Each structure stands twice: as structure tokens, then as C-alpha cells.
Amino acid sequence: MKPVHPELIAAIERTAKKLKEGAAYQWGHMGACNCGNLAQELTPFTKAEIHRYAMERSGDWNDQILEFCPSSGYPLDLIIERMLAYGVTLEDLKHLERLSSPEVLSKMPLNRRNSLSHNKKEDVIYYLETWGKLLREKWENQQPELKIDTLKKNSISVH
């Protein structure tokens, strides 16, 4: 099992919370879509900057992930590389954009899982919350003596 980073869990939870509280969401906007909202939490970039960087190459997040090359010099590749440093994988990002991780989906009731729409804000929030809970459980199983406190961006506390 790959190690789970508490910073990633906190970022996923913050992303869900921000979306719930009204943060901009637009599936067709590279900085305000599923991956774009998480990128805002894992990097110092705004939705406008993420979108602008993504427009330097064609395609949506899945296309950009397929073309990912850390030495390309494309700013979105640098953003993806920063995200990977927190323990998210390219597969995780592909699944997030389509709400399709079999592991995350297996934690959802069948009727809810089968009705998810990858471009519906409420479904993205539910997916993020489920993914966060799954990762939190994994992390706590890897570190049974420690617990994670969800804190502000770029700040994590482990007890």
C-alpha cells in the first residue's frame, strides 16, 4: 500500500468544504473543475492561473495528464508535479476528473455511485468527501498512534 500523506487528506477535505461553501465550480474551466479545485489547495496558484497555464496546451485534465512530462517546461506539468509530491497519483487525478476510482466508488451506496455525474458540483463534493474519508482511514491504519487535525491550507498538525 502506498503511503498516505496527511497534507493530501487535508487538501481534499478543504476542497470539498470550499465547494460546499460556494467556491467557483465549472467543469469546463481547467482551474475551477474537479482537478482544478484540488490544484488550488495543493499549489499556490489561483483558478485563473491554473486555467491560463492549462491553455498553453490542448485538452482537458485527462489529456494533460496523458501528456504529462515533468521536464516539458509547461506550467501545468509543474502544477501536476507539485500535486504528485503530496502523494496524489496520475491515476488519482484521472479518476477525480471523472469521479471514477473503483476504490472510492466502492465506499458509496450503489444507488448513489450509479447516479454520479462527473460535472455536477454536489457529486464532486460527495466524491471528495468519500475519498478523504477513505484516505484518512488508510492513514490512521498506517499510523495508529497518530490522528490528523484538518487545518488551513499549507498547515497540518499530527498528534
Score class of each variant (00 low, 15 high):
Lys133Cys: 00
Thr150Phe: 07
Asn34Thr: 15
Leu90Arg: 05
Pro6Met: 09
His51Ala: 13
Leu42Tyr: 00
Glu81Lys: 15
His118Ser: 13
Leu128Tyr: 06
Lys120Thr: 02
Leu105Pro: 01
Val104Leu: 03
Gly73Arg: 07
Thr150Asn: 02
Ile9Phe: 02
Ile50Val: 13
Tyr74Pro: 02
Ser101Asp: 04
Arg98Gly: 07
Ala16Glu: 05
Lys94Tyr: 11
Tyr25Pro: 10
Lys147Asn: 02
Leu135His: 00
Thr89Met: 12
Ala11Trp: 00
Asn37Cys: 15
His95Ser: 12
Leu84Gln: 10
Val4Ala: 02
Lys2Gly: 05
Thr89Gly: 07
Glu81Tyr: 12
Trp27Asn: 15
Trp131Leu: 08
Ser101Phe: 04
Asp60Thr: 10
Val4Glu: 07
Ala10Leu: 00
Trp131Glu: 05
Glu145Trp: 02
Arg113Pro: 09
Ser71Phe: 12
Asn62Gln: 14
Arg52Tyr: 04
Gly59Glu: 08
Leu146Asp: 00
Ile79Ala: 08
Glu56Asn: 02
Ala16Tyr: 14
Leu128Pro: 00
Glu122His: 01
Ile125Thr: 00
Arg57Leu: 05
Met1Leu: 08
Ala16Lys: 06
Glu41Trp: 07
Ile80Pro: 14
Gln143Val: 01
Glu122Leu: 06
Gly87Phe: 04
Trp61Asp: 05
Lys121Tyr: 13
Gly31Ala: 01
Thr150Tyr: 12
Ala11Cys: 07
Ser157Asp: 03
Ile148Arg: 14
Arg52Asp: 13
Ser71Arg: 11
Ala24Arg: 15
Gly59Gln: 05
Val158Lys: 07
Glu137His: 07
His95Gly: 01
Gly87Met: 05
Ala10Trp: 00
Ala24Cys: 12
Ala85Gly: 10
Glu67His: 07
Ala54Ser: 09
Ala54Gln: 01
Ala24Leu: 15
Leu19Ser: 06
Asn119Cys: 12
Lys107Met: 13
Ser58Val: 15
Ile12Phe: 05
Ser72Leu: 10
Pro144Trp: 02
Thr130Gln: 08
Cys69Pro: 01
Leu99Ala: 06
Gly28Ser: 13
Pro6Asp: 14
Lys94Gln: 08
Phe68Trp: 12
Ile79Ser: 06
Lys133Ile: 07
Leu66Lys: 14
Arg112Asp: 08
Tyr74Trp: 14
Trp61Ile: 09
Asn154Lys: 07
Arg112Gln: 04
Lys138Thr: 07
Glu129Cys: 01
His159Thr: 08
Tyr53Lys: 09
Glu103His: 04
Ser100His: 05
Lys153Asp: 12
Pro144Phe: 04
Lys138His: 06
Asp77Trp: 06
Asp92Val: 02
Tyr127Trp: 01
Lys107Ala: 11
Met55Tyr: 04
Ile65Lys: 11
Ser101Cys: 06
Ser117Arg: 03
Asn62Val: 13
Ala48Arg: 14
Leu146Gln: 08
Ile9Ser: 03
Gly132Arg: 10
Asp149Pro: 01
Asn154Arg: 01
